[in-house]
Design a protein around this nucleic acid. Sequence first.
DNA 1: AAAGCACTCAACCGCCTGTTC
DNA 2: GGAACAGGCGGTTGAGTGCTT
Length: 269
Amino acid sequence: MGRAPCCEKMGLKKGPWSPEEDNILISYIQNNGHSNWRALPKLAGLLRCGKSCRLRWTNYLRPDIKRGNFTKEEEDTIIKLHENLGNRWSAIAARLSGRTDNEIKNIWHTNLKKKLKNYQPSQNSKRHSKINHVSNKGPTTSESSNNSDFSTNNSTSTKLHIKIAPNSPQLSSSEISSVTLVVDDNQMVIIKEEKIESSSSEYFPKIDESFWTDELSTENNMVVGHDQEIQVREENVDIFTTSSKMEEDMDFWYNVFIKTGDLPELPEF
DNA sequence: AAAGCACTCAACCGCCTGTTC
DNA sequence: GGAACAGGCGGTTGAGTGCTT
């Protein structure tokens, strides 16, 4: 420990921001950026801690923030995403442009949770994400790393091969990466990505419409019904896709598949 | 009209993780 | 390797506002 608290309480203002403070923060960031939040308030002449400035900027002052009521579509999206991601508000916010994690968290607790309760009284929280990346970031939340509700006895050795069409039709097969998801003993998904140099027939025997629409290979006898929990211990999932911000999308996509057996809309890679 | 209650949401808090030295 | 720092995240709080009685 021995770590200095984020805010030195002495002399620093707390509570609601005044329009003057907002203006100071906005103009400072517009002119100088925000490379160091801790130093920012001093440099900008604000009696706030860096954390407070960052929060004010990211949750309220950022120019790309969409204000106003959530649309029905946005609400539906949040409900769907929450079902698959759990309380990972920032991950949900990343998929709703212009909305902040704080805003989504608020709307969830004040509005959608109630709505969902009325609409689906039998729904429980078991459908939260149980799978985490460990490739770069490690488990994302303490909740999601809790596998207590995840059956680990009688492990099966289901093997999946999932093929995802490249989103962009102009991509050549040489631009396609191979992604392997390996579920280890702790039910952690390790994502391994590697570029495939050429159109290796081993990985991509044929790239045409019929190949890509046959996303789930039936040869592996993978049958997952709606609302059915499946055991992923010792399971290997091979996914072929193009990639950039792939990991998060893959996590979401994979969770939907694992829990429902549905192949949801392909993520935008 | 006013008191009490419910709701909303901006802001804070504490913890965790990644980075730097 | 480990301590300190910085940023990010989810949970929680509480002031302000609206609604009900």
